[in-house]
Structure formats: C-alpha cells, structure tokens
C-alpha cells in the first residue's frame, strides 16, 4: 500500500460501484514503472550500503583480523582482482574462455533437465489434479519417490545412465521434477469448483475444460512451481557435477578445492548465484507476461 493512501478510505465499501484502479498493462509497463519508482526511493542506496558493509566485514574477518574460522577464506579484494584479471593466477576469470565453458555447460545441463521436468511434470500434475482416478494411480508412487533425497540417487544414476553427462542431467531433472509436479497439481486443486460448473453449464466439452479452465487456472501455481524447480535444478546440478562431472561450475568448485585454488571457489559460487537468479528472473518474466489477468490490486 502506498504511503499516501488513507487506511479508512481504502477499506470503505465501494458505494459508487466504480472500477478498481487499473495498473499499467503489459510486462514492460509494469517492470518499467516499478524500476523508476525503485530508483527514486531510498532502496538502491540501502542495497548498496548493505553490500559494501558485507564486503568490508568479509575483508576485515579474513584478512585484517585473521579470525581462525575465516583465515583460509580468500578475501573479497583478491577474489575480485582474480575474477577480472586478464592474466588470472589460477586460469579462471571473465577474460578466459574456460570460465564461459563451465557456465555454458552447467546452464545447458540445467536447461535440458528443466525442460524435461517441465515437459513431464506439468502435464502429469495437471492430469492428477483434474482427474481423481489418475491421481489415485499415481499418488502412492510419487509419495514414495518424492521424499528420497536427490543425493541418494547418485549411485543409481551413474549405474543406469550411459556416460556422465546423462547421469548429471538425470539427477538435475529429479531435483526439479517433483516441485513442478506438486505445484501443477496444487494449481488445479486451487481452481474454484464454480468455474468447472460454469463451464459445464455453458456447454464446454472435456477437452475445452482442460484447455480453458484447468490450464489457465493452474498457471499461477505452475509458474511458482517452475521458479522453485529451477532452484532445485541448480542445487542438484552442483551435487551431480561435484560427483561425476568433468566440466561445469559444480565441478570447478570441487576441482579448485582439491587444487587449492580457493579464489576460484568463490568466483564459481558467485557465478552460480548470478546465473541462478537470472534463470528464475526469466521464468518470472515469462510467467508475468502469460498471467496478465492476475492483477495486483494496488498496481
């Protein structure tokens, strides 16, 4: 709620039968409006202050005070210097091709696994939510498999799949599949039964009900699920790459640990954070563009 709104006024019933405030339509309209407001507020300065404070504390603990717990941690300054150095000591910086090979391969694995998890999880979840018979079949199996931690799958994944590449993608897929499935299922469950009744009254066939009610109605939950699932995908990917990889950011972290190239660990970790945020931002943006009807009341 904005600072200028009077609480008493916003809570009053609409005596005038007037429409609610109409927010700017379209993804860029809303993003743009939000961004310029954000720039004018105190938020960016506080964000910056927090970040600088965090880096100073890190430098202080690891390099100035040399606190035992932090003494092996590379300081932020040497990490940044290494990260942006044209001639990096340990061979990884924004100027080396290897850096982008690791990012590219990890992203490709996540993309493939995420695509598979979405392609299987969304239809399966929607069907389970829509048709009780279907969920009766599938529910026990899923409830048995879902709680198994992804790491418990590692030996099987290596045994079952030919080559490391497919086992890593499989592990990544597993991480993201269940989140997608469950949220798609919940999405259908969240649809008001009145919509199904209304559609049936108006003469909609089963396939039309799926296309026009189940699919759009579950969409908000599906996209929430996809954002969660892409996070799980990155999580599982790193575990998979540490155990079985020859390339990729997870492998790079583990390899740098073994080779005592500590600044590279930090570089790879920050990079993971950045690509992870970017992937969930992309999904959110696609979701917002598709779910234009879900308008926030205060714009």
């Amino acid at each position: 709620m904005s600072d200028t709104a009077l609480p008493g006024l916003t809570a009053a019933p609409s005596l005038t039968d007037a429409p609610k405030a109409l927010p700017p339509s379209g993804l860029w309209g809303r993003l743009g409006g939000g961004f310029s407001r954000w720039l004018k507020s105190s938020s960016p300065w506080l964000n910056l202050l927090g970040l600088v404070g965090f880096l100073l504390l890190w430098q202080l603990l690891s390099r100035v005070l040399k606190v035992p717990l932090f003494v092996k941690l590379p300081g932020p300054w040497e990490t940044v210097v290494e990260w942006f150095s044209p001639r990096p000591v340990y061979g990884i910086s924004v100027f080396t091709i290897e850096y982008y090979q690791h990012i590219g391969l990890s992203s490709l694995r996540v993309f493939l696994a995420f695509l598979l998890a979405t392609g299987l999880g969304v239809p399966l979840g929607l069907l389970m939510g829509w048709k009780k018979t279907f969920s009766d079949y599938a529910f026990p199996i899923l409830e048995l498999l879902r709680p198994i931690p992804m790491l418990a799958w590692v030996p099987l994944a290596i045994l079952m799949w030919p080559g490391r590449e497919s086992s890593i993608v499989f592990l990544t897929f597993l991480g993201s599949f269940f989140a997608t499935l469950l949220n798609s299922w919940l999405g259908v469950k969240s649809i008001d039964p009145a919509y199904f009744r209304a559609a049936a009254s108006l003469g909609a066939s089963e396939s039309l009900i799926f296309k026009k009610i189940v699919w759009p109605g579950a969409m908000p939950f599906v996209f929430t699920g996809l954002q969660i699932s892409v996070g799980y995908a990155w999580f599982s990917l790193v575990a998979g790459e540490m155990l079985a990889g020859e390339f990729g950011l997870g492998y790079l972290i583990w390899d740098s640990y073994i080779l005592v190239q500590y600044p590279v660990i930090i570089i790879a970790m920050i990079t993971l954070g950045l690509v992870g945020s970017l992937s969930s931002f992309i999904i959110r943006a696609i979701g917002n563009a598709l779910i234009r009807w879900k308008v926030k009341e205060n714009g």
Binding site: A194, A198, W293, K294
Partner: peptide
C-alpha cells in the same frame, strides 16, 4: 444457466471473452 452467489467469471478472460464464452465454444 446459473448465476452464482459468488462470481464465477473466469478470471483469466476479459469481460468480452467471458460473455462470448458460451456461444463461442
């Protein structure tokens, strides 16, 4: 046809699309 107590307009369709829904499908 039923007009419900609570609105059962499809939230993902515009006013026009909601009203057009029956004859269209």
């Amino acid at each position: 046809l039923v007009v419900f107590q609570e609105t059962a307009l499809f939230p993902w369709l515009t006013t026009f699309e909601n009203v057009a829904y029956g004859p269209k499908i």
